[in-house]
Amino acid sequence: MENFEPEIVAFCCHYCAYTAADMAGSKRIAYPPNVKIIRVPCTGKVDAIHIMKAFEKGADGVYVAGCLEGDCHFKNGNTRAKYRVEQVQKYLTDLGWEKDRVAMINMSAGMGEFFASTALEFTQNIKQLGPSPIKHFNTDGHQTAVS
């Protein structure tokens, strides 16, 4: 388990979280490379299915990162995203998964440090939880998604 490197998908809104990620880069603030960003115009675009499918395809953790609450470029897309994340958490709980594999995070475009620290924190949390329940260790130590 020690060398387990989780695969993490981050759905980031263009206006805040994606910009914050760029900011983290431009300030050279390191964070775990496990996090892979998929850009969306607003977290309100992130459908529960997108999150579920990410797990289905092999993600160990997924988070949705949008603007600070009350600060959404599109008024309330981020609060809608929050509810959808909660919906997925409920699904995961029902399936006997850890609900913390999915999270909603809010940040502003200027919060490069925060982007990095959350990426680190989330990655550590997922490491604690271990590989996604659909992954099985092969003898050579590599994980593969059964699909």
Binding site: A48, I49, E56, L92, L95, W97, V146
Partner: peptide, 21 residues
């Protein structure tokens, strides 16, 4: 359609966890 997609995904996740497809 949306709920169908979500349920399908959830069921897939469940079976994959069981090690079957």
């Amino acid at each position: 359609r949306k709920e169908v997609g979500l349920l399908a995904s959830a069921l897939n996740l469940h079976s994959l966890k069981q090690g079957r497809t």
